[in-house]
């Protein structure tokens, strides 16, 4: 983290949805950095705000959502307050995205060739034939056999895994610096998921692309990420290297999350569970948002909102000062 250059940083980002019964604070004080060439995993349960964070970086927010505080800085330049046109230019060219459903992220009435070359020509100063060459080369790179012929086909002529490969090619065709991948393998079967993840990892390392991988699956995180941010109810509760997060989590939520995942070969009578469920954004508790479910809750947790503090391994937003391992 220290030796690498920070390419994008999110500083104290707060995001609200306007609602007639008052604003819903969907993201509160989100801060993290993304370094050149790393794969940052953002993990959390549904409603934690992980996809929203991705959309905020992409500048693809609903009209009802507004950034109320904080900033997003991309290569030294603030991008959250740019006008639509410059945001649009940045979005296609330097920051691109991969979405969950490969069926809906490709246009069904255009051939793969049309979709790829159009994107390339919009953003890169190439001729039609150069764009086509680049497109074919990319398809070969993502593992589509006979790319020169298959590029003339329509999305429905490809299987789910192949489509997601094409989506990856589409995201990488303009050589972006950052790719936001929102649950890229959730819709895929486990064997295909493995193929796509390995592909994504290999390509990003080759091209030096920085990836923000949004997922709910800890297994996926462990598979490909360098660093992980754990989100809960609109806040980042822990951030650190993947090894530390998976092996030595510090935040009670991360600990609970890790323990509740069934492991192959470990047959326990009961899974350890976190009681309760994530609060709705309209009914957030005071203080630490996790305290009603926390088993290490102590005096003050219900009044003071903790901020991220660097420990020896990860940065944790928790009031306790002793590590959980010592606690147990």
């Amino acid at each position: 983290m220290d030796d690498k250059q920070v390419i994008l940083s999110v500083k104290g980002l707060c995001l609200e949805f306007s609602h007639r019964k008052g604003a819903i604070k969907a993201l509160r004080d989100i801060s993290f950095d993304m370094c050149q060439g790393e794969i940052l995993g953002v993990v959390g349960e549904s409603g934690a705000g992980k996809s929203l964070t991705g959309s905020a970086i992409m500048g693809l927010l609903d009209d009802s959502a507004a950034i109320t505080a904080g900033e997003i800085v991309y290569q030294g330049q603030r991008i959250d307050n740019l006008d639509d046109a410059s945001r649009q230019a940045l979005r296609g060219k330097e920051i691109s995205a991969i979405f969950q459903d490969p069926l809906t992220s490709l246009n069904p009435v255009l051939t793969i060739e049309e979709q790829l070359t159009e994107t390339i020509l919009t953003h890169l100063p190439l001729s039609q034939s150069e764009a086509l060459e680049k497109a074919i080369a990319l398809l070969e790179e993502v593992g589509i056999a006979q790319a020169a012929e298959r590029i003339k086909q329509y999305p429905h002529q490809f299987s789910g895994g192949m489509r997601q490969r094409i989506v990856i090619a589409l995201a990488l065709c303009v050589d972006p610096f950052i790719v936001i991948a929102d649950e890229p393998t959730t819709a895929l079967d486990v064997s295909v998921q493995s193929q796509v993840l390995q592909l994504l990892k290999r390509l990003c390392k080759q091209h030096g692309t920085t990836v923000m991988l949004v997922t709910h699956d800890m297994g996926v995180i462990a598979e490909v990420c360098d660093r992980v941010a754990v989100m809960y109810a609109g806040e980042v509760v822990e951030i650190g290297k993947v090894h530390d997060i998976v092996k030595h989590p510090q935040h009670p939520y991360t600990v609970g999350l890790m323990d509740s995942i069934p492991r192959i070969g470990v047959r326990k009578k009961r899974l350890s569970q976190i009681s309760g469920s994530m609060p709705r954004l309209t009914e957030l508790p005071c203080g630490c948002k996790f305290h009603p479910r926390c088993q290490f809750k102590q005096f003050g947790c219900d009044t003071t909102t903790p901020c991220l503090k660097q420990t020896t391994t990860t940065a944790v937003a928790c009031l306790r000062d002793i590590s959980i391992e010592e606690h147990i």
């Binding site: 699956d217 297994g219 462990a222 192959i264």
Partner: peptide
């Protein structure tokens, strides 16, 4: 065997794999 091989594992972080090709 192939299925077992493809399961993402939390015990072996950033494991390098050569996944089986093809789809159902």
């Amino acid at each position: 065997k192939m299925l077992m091989e493809a399961i993402p594992s939390m015990d072996e972080i950033n494991k390098e794999r050569t996944p089986v090709s093809g789809e159902v």
